[in-house]
Simulated scan of single mutants.
Amino acid sequence: MHKVIFDTDPGIDDAMALLFLHASPEVDLLAITTTFGNGTIETTTRNALYLAERFGIAAPIGRGAGAPLVGAAGDPPDFVHGGNGLGDIDIPAVLTRQPDPRPAYRLIIDLVRTHPGEIEIVAVGRMTNLALALREAPDIAPLVKQVVIMGGAFGINGVLGNVTPAAEANIWGDPLAADEVTGANWPLTMVGLDVTQQTRMPTPFLRALANEAGKVGRFIWEISRFYEAFHLKGGVDSIYVHDSSAVAYLLAPDLFETRRGSIRVVSEGLAFGMTIQKPADQSGPPSPWDGRPEHRICTGVDAEGLRRLYRSTLQLRSGR
């Protein structure tokens, strides 16, 4: 079993990834922690509570950071996820689920210390909660089994950022936090745009989920209408599989090709938010990458295998 903390900013693709985790019989979801990004922290926390209530997810939900380590949060990308973060579907005004009394970073610290060597963190939003946990309790890093991040763009096959030519959104939203997280001595893999844009879910695939995966599949179809429309405006006739790719790496890392090396994140200037890996086999003069731990980035993916895994996992939950 994977004992998982899911750090997220729901978000349409975040919701799809959360339901992927919840459907997997191999996952023990210990907590959901929220961060700003696809909405304000109020919106993303409300969405996490709503998803947990609607789909019977028992994990505690810790409200997390509402702004980056330095500066203010930018405006949420309403044009991607809708004004309510979930494609503008109807959401009840009142929810029965309430957040855990602990802030997200403290919930992370407590769970890691309670389950040393067992916790796997899947982080698909800004890295702020993880950075705050490390600042408060740097001793937790070697106690974490692994960290899987959806974030970054490393230029594999010419893939660039999606906020600027240099930066992917999750990293751009708090690059200082990302640099601190990638500098920590815990096993870490970044699943960036280099592979998430290689895997797409076209309309027939999403329609099949609606027909085959019960209420979860119908919900995914509903929220993905707004998301698909955004992609179509950009000339993409399907949706990119961003956050669910990080879950797929957790469940089936053999679907991915990876490269090891130290990682730095640019936190100022024109390349703000850019992620740069120095491959482990690359020599050179002294540089800011020296002394940093080696981590993995994903460089290739079996896209069809990932889609099969997603579909079969949701079908399993629905009883088909």
Rank of each mutant, 00 (worst) to 15 (best):
K3Y: 14
D7H: 09
M16V: 14
L18H: 03
L21E: 10
D28H: 04
A31L: 12
T33N: 02
E42T: 06
N47L: 09
Y50W: 15
F55N: 01
G56P: 08
R63P: 07
G85P: 13
A93Q: 14
R102Y: 12
L107K: 00
I109V: 15
T114E: 15
T114P: 01
E120D: 05
T128I: 12
L132M: 12
L134I: 14
E136H: 05
A137C: 11
D139S: 06
D139V: 05
P142D: 09
Q146F: 05
I149H: 04
N162Q: 06
T164P: 09
P165N: 05
A167G: 07
A167Y: 14
W172D: 02
D174K: 02
A177L: 13
D179M: 03
V181Q: 08
T182S: 08
N185Y: 09
P202A: 08
T203P: 01
A208I: 08
L209H: 07
E212P: 00
G214S: 05
R218Q: 15
I223M: 06
E228G: 00
H231W: 15
D237T: 06
S238P: 10
H242Y: 15
S244E: 12
S283Q: 13
G284D: 13
P286L: 08
S287K: 08
D290L: 07
E294H: 08
E294T: 04
I297G: 00
G300R: 09
S312W: 13
R320H: 05
